[in-house]
Computed example of a mutant assay.
Amino acid sequence: MSSVLVTGATGTLGRVVVPALAAAGHDVRAMSRVHRRPDGEETWVRADLATGQGLADAVDGVGTVVHLASAPYRRGYTRRVDVAGTARLVAAARAAGVDHVLLMSIVGVDRVPWGFYRTKLEAERQVAEGGAPWTVLRATQFFDFLDTAFAALTRLPVVPLDRRVRAQPVDTADVADLLVELVAAGPARDTVELGGPGVLTGDTALREWMAATGRRRRVLPVRGPGRMLAAFRDGAATTPALPTGTRTWSEFLARRYGRR
Rank of each mutant, 00 (worst) to 15 (best):
S2P: 14
V6R: 01
T12A: 13
L13N: 06
L21Q: 08
G25Q: 06
D27L: 09
V28M: 06
R33I: 07
V34T: 15
R36G: 14
R37A: 15
D39T: 15
G40A: 15
E41T: 11
T43L: 06
A50G: 14
T51M: 09
T51W: 07
G54F: 11
L55I: 14
D57G: 13
V59Y: 12
D60W: 05
V66G: 00
H67Y: 11
S70M: 04
Y73L: 12
Y77N: 11
Y77M: 11
A93W: 09
A95V: 11
A96L: 14
V101K: 03
L102Y: 03
V127N: 03
E129G: 13
G130E: 09
G130V: 09
A132M: 09
P133V: 09
F142I: 04
D147K: 03
V158E: 05
V159Q: 05
V159D: 04
R164A: 09
R166W: 01
T172G: 04
A176E: 04
L179T: 05
A185Y: 01
G186F: 09
A188T: 10
T191M: 10
G195E: 02
P197T: 12
T201K: 06
E208I: 02
W209L: 03
A211R: 13
A211F: 00
R215Y: 08
R218Y: 02
V219C: 09
P221R: 03
R223V: 13
G226E: 09
G235H: 08
P240E: 08
T244G: 05
T248Q: 13
F252K: 04
R255G: 13
R256L: 07
Y257F: 13
